[in-house]
Design a protein around this nucleic acid. Sequence first.
RNA 1: UGGGGAGUAGUUGAGUUGGUAAAACGCCUGACUCUGGAUCAGGAGGCCGAAGGUUCGAAUCCUUCCUCCCCAGCCA
Length: 565
Amino acid sequence: MNEDKGNPSATSAPLDFIRRIVADDLRTGKWGGRVVTRFPPEPNGYLHIGHAKSICLNFGIAEQFGGVCHLRFDDTNPTKEEEEYVNAIIEDVRWLGFDWGEHLYFASDYFQQMYDYAEQLIRAGKAYVCDLSSEEVRLSRGTLTEPGRESPYRNRSVEENLDLFRRMKAGEFPDGSRTLRAKIDMASPNLNLRDPVMYRILHAEHHRTGAAWCIYPMYDWAHGLEDSIERVTHSICTLEFEDHRPLYDWFLDALGVYHPRQIEFARLNLSYTVMSKRRLLQLVREGYVSGWDDPRMPTLSGLRRRGYTPESIRNFCYSLGVAKDDGVVDVARLEHSVRDDLNRRAPRVLAVLRPLKLVVENYPESQVEEMDAINNPEDPGAGTRKVPFSRELYIERDDFREHPPKGYFRLSPGREVRLRYGYFVTCTDVVKDGGGEVVEVRCTYDPASRGGNSPDGRKVKGTIHWVSARHAVPAEVRLYEHLFTRPDPDDVPEGEDWTSNLNANSLEVVAAYVEPGLARAKAGERFQFERLGYFCVDPDSKPGAMVFNRTVSLKDTWAKVEKKR
RNA sequence: UGGGGAGUAGUUGAGUUGGUAAAACGCCUGACUCUGGAUCAGGAGGCCGAAGGUUCGAAUCCUUCCUCCCCAGCCA
């Protein structure tokens, strides 16, 4: 099939800084020849294209260096996490093409061990139960420039801490009344080290552990332990956790346990869209889109429904590289990678998005011919098919101009064009409605040009697509544009927010006609509508009521030329 | 303002021990073509954030400065 391009495992491309670290570690035997990475999503939303970069990195490294990559749910906050999300995440990672084998884990499975480690830290005098409220903690934490103040509970005895912590676990105290904190340094310039909270009390039902726990570990405390327990070698995360690394290291050192190396890289940002889970959730909840899998969403489920292939997303991610400066990637690159993939594999078909009737005056009224059409010029093995041709056809409105501009070489009065796989036709007349709108075009055909070539060798510049009016299948086609009108959704006037940059025209529904063979196409099937773009059958599609999504248009140099005028 | 990061073509990014700047996408030409697609061949585009310094020589080393991002959740 389609080999991933740009994946260092498949090319001689220079290694990125993370792969270089892995390769060095392998050479020096630092981890005993093991390579263990992990992708640790929190099940509080759907995966998006930014996660795909992380997935490709982690699974890609494991694959390339003969290691393994774990899929681990970081489910330490029962108030935000749901099973629906874990199922969707599993489906998405699998769809993207990765396999974690036996290595499916849940942080919640480690709760008991984490608890035991916490007691160990208490006994070592490195953690204490604090009775301050969250407000009081906030006030005593200090600011960016001023040190914090130590909690009055900071020096409780080990016995008292142990007793209180056990009672926290036993459910004796209400939410928010106490926390377990690490005893580090309230004056540290790194705020993360100012006695961070390790456990909070949350009497909440967890999607996996139910009511077994009422204290839940915080990210900083839990994450390193998860990595340690799984004997991860390289714990790869995004830049915002760079500040947390000293804490990651502190916990593991304080415990004296197996200690992976955390490495940070820049997350992916894409132009014309938003990527934060909070904002994606807002788009869903407030009805700006139809759901997490709305084809306009940058979620993997949205891209899948839109018609993106896993290969194209992987190739896109590999083409990005891995570095530490965060910028914004032009969506045009994502679009390029689907075109590149679909060009090679998508069967071509004829479809007319905005129909204009074309009557071939000298073509016999009742005649129908089956024309031979090539399924995919990029893939000779794809074969050919028959497409019916008759006297009345539909052509694209855009392919006729009563007054053609310079450089236009499609149909217009007196002009001859080729109907793809059909005949040469010459426009003889137009029919207009009361408002002067062209509602029908008349033409004559050259019977000698059957199939698309004329025996006298004369050339025509334009080739347009068409569909037989009598045989065509009506279909709903959903045309998508960028979700936002500006590359940076946050680029708004004073007082407005990112939602004011939502593109009102991001979805246009059109009543189209497609060639008859498409009547049986199944959800998820992808096609190239010749000269238009790549389209995918939507799950909403039903026999007799086909629905297609436009994945991406074809490059259109004529549109570009026209736009410049 | 304290701490942590980052600054190389429009974008993403190579450039690992200093020798004077890859590539991809985008853009512009042209060729070819029964998709104005694809393909092929060319091209434009960078004072390597700035200023000093070291050196025969600096994107790479030193100094100072500037800009951008992250951190004051009992979120992850």
